[in-house]
Design a binder for these strands. Structure first.
Lengths: 249, 249
DNA sequence: CCCGAATACTGATCTGGATCAAACAAACTT
DNA sequence: AAGTTTGTTTGATCCAGATCAGTATTCGGG
């Protein structure tokens, strides 16, 4: 159980010039990171409790299921997936984490991490102890609300994916969700990279990998998307929204 | 959109002796309500922001999807279901709420209630503005943590139900979940009433009502449960756990 | 550059649970 | 109590997507 967070405490980063990184206020995440809407003083306090990581390589874990819950992490660059291992030893993908998103809040109630979280790409994170986040939240209404908001959003997302959806609906929702999240990050909402494998997508959406392949091929034939390996281009967003039966995204 | 909360503000309860009710510290919920782990002073402060409702009859709504998010509610007695209406006009059950459980936290991120929430039984609730809850949470670490904990728990629950489960697994998990929640409330964990219809159970578990009937009948034949109308007796919890493939519950 | 191992795609079957159809039982109406 | 409505159960079919089988493509390592 060798986790990056444990092996390489970032408390030391300011003492190690080679690891020095930009302050949150200059971070490429801009307003997307945790301290969104904080005023200047709050941002300075916030930065003091944030630890920036060295690069994390694809395949490296930052949390393991069962780990004591001490820290949460936000993604600066790259992509992570979280997954559980079920009774049959099968991997079950629970979610993907793009830049600006926070990881680990589902561990609060049990005091242990529920999921394994692994980098899909060369990535970087910021980590903070949950204790310091929640204690700061008590004097920063905006931060407290941001935490509530993120957990509430995750609940809504799960209520959607838990619904009774066809394979087409699931794939359309998945593509639109990624598009929206990349757009929020400042990337194109038309063209993006699937950092995760077909197998991961299938597991996340509760489909067979074969079904993912087939639906993507069908969408391409119908001119809705162009898919080449991991590259995706959204060609007909409106029709994807129709299929997903949602006006959201 | 006539909601009980709006029609009958409980701010007035202390002025209306007919509606006076016991203080939280004497409430039948005991330690299960929101102020769990609060000390005496905090409990007194807490009680000042809680509004107790008159009885709510089966079929009455306490929230409607789209309502502005101002208040949350905790169940004192009875049972509620929350549901959404999908694009086809079909009702989709999102969850059931038993005594001691809190309703409405999934509305935070959008500022509007996502779900319709309706009483299944004659019920009673306590309601509080989210603003007063979160502002109090800032001076009560235990309360803030309790809120985080509850949202985190809901995330875990949804991660389970969103999983790729067979009909048998879903029903077994459902029965065990109810059993655990009734037990926590001080009721029997062997024998309880299903306040919700077969149709509601089916919608919640993403099954057809016919499948719910058939699985319950099969479980009864195998001696796992006795089901008579809305009355349920758990006969073989271990085998139910096996079917649910979980050591939890 | 080639080779072996993943990963992705495509076609042929199979199946769990949905859907359709009907009988049945309980809960209201009058 | 008889009739009406609503909810539940049982039986017969059907289908979306899983599974199985085989091929094609990509990628990492020498």
């Amino acid at each position: 159980m060798n986790n990056v967070l444990q092996m390489n405490s970032l408390r030391d980063s300011h003492r190690d010039p080679a690891r020095a990184q930009v302050a949150c206020s200059q971070c490429s995440l801009g307003e997307l990171c945790l301290p969104k809407n904080l005023d200047k003083d709050d941002k300075i306090r916030f930065e003091q409790i944030v630890h920036r990581s060295r690069p994390i390589h694809a395949g490296e874990h930052i949390f393991r299921a069962g780990d004591e819950f001490r820290t949460v992490a936000t993604v600066r660059t790259g992509c992570f997936k979280s997954y559980a291992i079920d009774q049959d030893g099968q991997e079950q993908v629970l979610g993907f984490h793009l830049p600006g998103e926070i990881i680990g809040l589902d561990a609060i109630h049990s005091g242990r991490h529920i999921a394994n979280v692994v980098a899909l790409d060369t990535s970087a994170i910021c980590s903070l102890t949950f204790h310091s986040v929640s204690s700061m939240a008590r004097s920063m209404p905006e931060l407290q609300h941001e935490l509530f908001r993120m957990m509430s959003q995750r609940i809504s997302e799960l209520e959607t994916i838990a619904g009774d959806l066809s394979a087409d609906e699931r794939i359309a929702l998945f593509l639109l969700s990624l598009s929206r999240r990349f757009a929020r990050r400042g990337y194109s909402n038309k063209e993006f990279i699937l950092a995760m494998s077909r197998r991961d997508i299938a597991s996340y959406l509760r489909l067979a990998t074969e079904t993912v392949s087939r639906v993507l091929a069908r969408f391409q034939q119908r001119g809705l998307v162009e898919v080449d390996r991991k590259q995706v281009v959204i060609c007909d967003r409106d029709e994807l929204r129709n299929i997903a039966r949602t006006t959201l995204h």
